[in-house]
Design a protein around this nucleic acid. Structure first.
Lengths: 259, 259
DNA sequence: CTCAATCGTGCACAAACAAGCATAAAGATG
DNA sequence: CATCTTTATGCTTGTTTGTGCACGATTGAG
């Protein structure tokens, strides 16, 4: 327990979460903070007593449901991505420098990080940077430049120059398609170039994808599949593809989607 | 232990740490300074008594108003900020290049922009960039660098280099205090330096503040008040201050807070 | 109705704490 | 110079606080 979260911080984070997400679940918070559910329940009870939230069975709700929009629209295929994210988080450990590429799955990973983790995070995606800001132990390096609206992140010349100056221990790559023959592919030319550079700079590469992206390819090649160190896929992915990836020496993890 | 730190030095360092990290742990400080935890606790107790921090079990947290992070400030006086934002939006027109500085009020402004506006927006704040992404006609330039947790944006050397290469038509400045004598001020040294540069680079400067910031000052000077082109304040702000600003040639707009 | 998830309470334990005392260095006073 | 005072620190003691676990009660879905 090198970096415990302080009680006040926890409650503050829960409040922020209530405001942005509109609700919190005790189980999730417990796992995220790395504390027992009892502790979370105690927090929620205290906060409810102080008039900061409404306690409900399973979690809590904000008193004034004056919902802001930021986190909401992303939260659609969250169920499946959440499962991938929880698995991916195991590969991220204290002290690492990790690059978070643009991708909704990667956003889920950033959110699923334990609240007390200590690491240096690099990202070109404002949404991910915003999510990372909720974890007090993370040093965030923002990659700047013109933001590509399709990708939702900075991928141009400026961004490439900045990522070129960094040497992350791990690159969490967002992919548009991954296939044995075509390798890892992206929808946009510049995005592909940026991703290629990110992979090049990193000591290891982790990819987490939903089943529908396995075996498909997009127009622009990023790197061959074997450049991927660890691949996390849903259980439903084509078995032939999975074993082919394994044959390449990739560490393939399958996670089953929750009901 | 070769360099014994004086008490004052230690407390100063703790304050800095509080600002940049947003929290300190008694154990860490003790080990770092090579003193006993008791000594650190004594320091923290004194500082808390002097109103410099909030003492919590295990360490200390920075104190309002500057001590709270951006994400936290966002949900505070949303209605009043909304009113300011609606007024500020009138000054932003199609075709402009606008810099959005870090500030919860500025986030409200970004959100309040008409959906069909066409402009180039520059920002060092992930939260604002994320909000801008919802307006399809905006070209977003992200200023990168290490993110200061208290400010919620990139304000260091990298960020300063990047803003230095741009010439926005309008700088929407976030301020921690604005006063006739002290001018525009900020809570952090680096943030102040960044803001100063942003003002320097811009053709015009707009400041939108809630009434409580008028007539107050923070530790670090940014620019004199007269460098501000347009000032939007709530109706409740001190009338003497408002007319003093007008006398400086500033275009002062007052908006009435909704009940 | 049944059953699993969730909850509250009491308890135990370790970490963090405050208060008081002892020591040593820096400074003041004679 | 000798001695007294002040100040900062570490140590000891007993107390408080936060947390996890065990157990039985409660809730809500099918």
């Amino acid at each position: 327990m090198q970096t415990e979260l302080l009680l006040r911080e926890r409650q503050q984070i829960i409040q922020d979460r209530l405001k942005t997400s509109g609700r919190v679940l005790a189980v999730d918070l417990a796992r995220e903070f790395g504390v027992s559910e009892d502790t979370v329940r105690r927090d929620l009870r205290e906060m409810a007593a102080a008039g900061l939230c409404e306690r409900v069975y399973g979690g809590a709700l904000p008193l004034a449901p004056g919902g802001t929009s930021l986190a909401r629209r992303v939260g659609e295929a969250t169920e499946r991505k959440q499962a991938l994210a929880l698995s991916a988080v195991d590969f991220i450990r204290d002290g690492m420098t990790v690059f978070f590429d643009a991708s909704s799955t990667n956003l889920a990973i950033a959110r699923a990080l334990p609240a007390d983790i200590r690491l240096t995070a690099v990202t070109n995606t404002p949404l991910i940077a915003a999510a990372l800001m909720e974890k007090p132990g993370i040093e965030i390096i923002l990659i700047g430049g013109r933001i590509d609206r399709q990708v939702g992140a900075a991928v141009g010349a400026t961004a490439q120059r900045e990522i070129g100056a960094l040497r992350p221990d791990l690159c969490i790559l967002g992919v548009c398609g991954i296939d044995i023959a075509a390798g890892i592919t992206a929808f946009e030319y510049e995005d592909a170039a940026f991703k290629r550079l990110a992979v090049q700079q990193s000591a290891a590469v982790l990819v987490a994808v939903t089943a529908d992206k396995v075996g498909t390819s997009a127009p622009h090649a990023v790197v061959p599949a074997k450049d991927c160190t660890t691949l996390i896929v849903e259980e439903g992915a084509a078995a032939t593809a999975v074993s082919a990836f394994r044959a390449l020496g990739i560490d393939v993890i399958t996670v089953k989607a929750k009901s």
